[in-house]
Simulated scan of single mutants.
Amino acid sequence: MATAPYGVRLLVGAAVTALDETRKLPQTILTYPMTVASQLAHLVMKVQQDVADLVNRGDEALEELFPPKDEQPEWATFDEDLPDDPFRNLADDDEVAPVTRLTEGRFALFSEGEATPEVVEPAGNGSAGVPGVVERIGYETLTLAQLRARLTSLKLDELEALLAFEEANKARAPFQTLLANRITRASAK
């Protein structure tokens, strides 16, 4: 078969392509709004990236012309600025401030008993004036949470002995409050 002239082949190709595109037209019309929206979103993101790139290049140029001052406000303290000595007071570098462990008041809520307290008032049937319930439950080493868990198993007289022991020795407010509230509830029953 002989080859058709170039112009004829071009016209036939254009007609076939137009016919194919006409057949796809119903589907293309449905997807056209989404295609336009995605192309618009792509264009907006591209513009934002170009603007950000221009700003970065401007920052670099300004930084070369006007180098930034490496100043830090006197009130700002960063971890790398801290001295290696943990006993050093940051406010006054000439004096050493001792770090004390707070185990009194509200800080005693979850602290362990470090030393056996001095018993001021003998109260009960334990050794050396310590109530028996104190030794039995290991009261002196209990945290507030551990004591709270054991309170339900104690009788009213044992609770009162614990409260008297706490008031006479360590006098920690959270422990006293917990014991007093439990005594109130137990006596109301």
Rank of each mutant, 00 (worst) to 15 (best):
S153Y: 08
K24N: 10
E80C: 02
L90R: 08
L159P: 01
P117H: 01
G124I: 01
D93N: 10
V8C: 08
A123I: 03
P122R: 03
L142E: 00
T177S: 13
A14P: 05
P68I: 10
Q48N: 09
N89V: 06
Q39H: 10
E158A: 01
V44E: 14
P122V: 04
P68E: 09
N56T: 08
A186E: 08
N89M: 04
G13E: 14
F107D: 11
P67V: 00
E71L: 14
Y32C: 09
Q39I: 06
E140A: 10
I183E: 05
A128P: 01
V120T: 14
D157M: 06
A61K: 12
P5Y: 02
L156D: 05
T152W: 07
W75F: 08
G105L: 06
L142Y: 05
A97S: 14
G132F: 06
D20Q: 12
T116N: 10
G13H: 13
P98K: 01
Q39W: 06
A108D: 03
D93A: 13
E64N: 10
V47Q: 15
V47Y: 14
G105A: 06
G129Y: 04
K155V: 06
D94W: 03
A168L: 02
V51P: 02
A37V: 04
L163T: 07
L151R: 01
L30I: 08
R148G: 14
V16P: 02
V47P: 03
A14M: 11
Y139L: 05
R101I: 13
V119S: 00
E121N: 13
R148S: 13
G105N: 04
R148E: 11
L19G: 12
T77M: 09
D70C: 12
A15Y: 12
T141E: 15
P174V: 01
P174A: 07
G58Q: 13
Y139W: 06
V47S: 12
E60S: 13
E80T: 00
L102S: 14
S111G: 07
L25I: 08
L40M: 10
K24P: 02
T177H: 11
E80Q: 03
D157G: 03
A4T: 06
G126Q: 08
E166F: 02
V133S: 03
A15N: 14
E140H: 07
V36G: 03
F165V: 00
A97L: 07
V16G: 07
Q39S: 11
A115K: 15
V51H: 10
R148W: 09
A161I: 02
V16I: 15
T184S: 07
D20E: 10
A128N: 14
P86L: 03
P26D: 05
D157P: 06
